[in-house]
Nucleic acid binder design. Sequence first.
DNA 1: AATTCATGATGCCATTTTGTTATCAATTAT
DNA 2: ATAATTGATAACAAAATGGCATCATGAATT
Lengths: 298, 298
Amino acid sequence: MNFGLRHIRYFIAVAEELHFSRAAEKLGIAQPALSKAILVLENELSVRLFHRSNRHVQITEAGQTFLDGCRNAMNLIEQSAENTQRAHSGQIGTLRIGYTDNAMAGSLPQILKAFQDVQPGLVLKPHHDVSNIQLKKLDEGELEIGFVTGPINRSGLNQCLVQSEKFVCVVYKDHPLANRKTVRLEELAKQNFVHGSSKDWEHFHSYLLPLCRRAGFVPKVIQEAFNTAGILGLVSCGMGITVLTESISKSGGTGLTVIPIQDMSEELQTMAIWKSDTMDGTKKRFVDFLQQGNDLPV
Amino acid sequence: MNFGLRHIRYFIAVAEELHFSRAAEKLGIAQPALSKAILVLENELSVRLFHRSNRHVQITEAGQTFLDGCRNAMNLIEQSAENTQRAHSGQIGTLRIGYTDNAMAGSLPQILKAFQDVQPGLVLKPHHDVSNIQLKKLDEGELEIGFVTGPINRSGLNQCLVQSEKFVCVVYKDHPLANRKTVRLEELAKQNFVHGSSKDWEHFHSYLLPLCRRAGFVPKVIQEAFNTAGILGLVSCGMGITVLTESISKSGGTGLTVIPIQDMSEELQTMAIWKSDTMDGTKKRFVDFLQQGNDLPV
DNA sequence: AATTCATGATGCCATTTTGTTATCAATTAT
DNA sequence: ATAATTGATAACAAAATGGCATCATGAATT
């Protein structure tokens, strides 16, 4: 098997014309070159592909078999080269996108929808993961884009602000604070907190806890849940209160009261984040779409 | 699209190893040659296929797309080359075989069955045609093998005797001759004959008529039919008599009597026949199988 | 029968492609 | 800081491909 695409192209031409001189002309080469190329191919396969008399050329049965295969292969390769170029320019492809509860409760759905409208050739595969896991998956190439709680300070990653939300206090509707218009953070010092589990929510906590510490207390956590729905469920049945962000706290359903936190200027930022090397076409398209001007390289 | 199978092979190797030096070693070439080949491929496609840092090589998304296509194409080509060789050696393929009523009523079914048993990879496609048409189709490459009434005297065709049968007289069961043990050919001079239509049966007649002429008469044809079944049908309902061969006259069913013809040494020969150029593998196998020693080249 | 014609094969040389060795440049590990 | 790893580059060698002139053969023409 030591022939090339060139031989295959020539073979197809001869099979189509059944005439060496004409096929050679069509290929833009001289007839002897074509004769030689076909001979090489025949030797390589140890198969006679054409019956040639000096009057007529006809394809052998084996030649016909080979022709079918060659036609398919050539189409496949051409098609594939085209797809490759489209994948390169980002017209087709797959984008694995990580998201947090915060991102999905906020502006991510609209972003994905809008992007799909502009780039219908791309398949988006969203994966729900907390920020830490997303960072790991980005590193290991299991995600192209993450939507995480930020900002992140890590080299090799670029990011872009997607949303910024105030923290709010969520209590069950019979709670003493339930009818307050606002609370101050330090008022929560003696409350029982429901939190996300330490391991998975470490990232979120790393933004919230310093603020509590600044307000002079460490939250008294009496219960942990694995996700937002779990936290809000525990809150609504009276286990305690929690602090989340505006948009996500809306998803809790009845039995809950959301109270703005007074004098708290810090917001929880959700960032799109991606590896700055390996900028493939699809990723580039998505990032360009996101940025529309407001890049924040690390 | 000006790259070759070589580039594709190299690309697959690099994609598998994700390491130029190792891939080169595996391919049995030096690393710079491989680097250059991949660069050529990338330029040709205008697509970066690998992200290379000095420490790691990873495939791009576009590269992955191309890899899939290349793998398929390579498999296809390798598979196809193999099939081509098998087709050449006659292990696989198709054989279009023409046959006359005589051949099919005689030994052809056993021949085809026996050949299929020995060469299960070959597809046999039998076509019912009178000898003339078969010869034309052989010429035009629409048949590989014909089973015709012979012998044939034509250059470029080889043949091989398959069966040789006595002529017999077929009459309806109430016919005056019906209870005779044998007849002589000249006794049929005054009988009404049912024949095959002149055009299609010309070939059969060209063997039978000279024998009648030698016996001193020209058959009085009162009815023509298109095929053997038609002839025997007309005979059985009393339209006349006919002369056919032993085996085929057995297929006529009731109402008919078959009478050997006395003192008639000539027999109707059925020959396998094929073009002597264009000896493809499948045809060669079939011919070798048929001959088992007794070739009759023209 | 002799001649011409059509057509694929062959020999020889030029050009292009492919490959090798030595070396560089950049990055990581020690 | 130094050594090691690894892909890219340069210069040259080998192999492949292509072109031109010519040959060989069988068919068509005279």
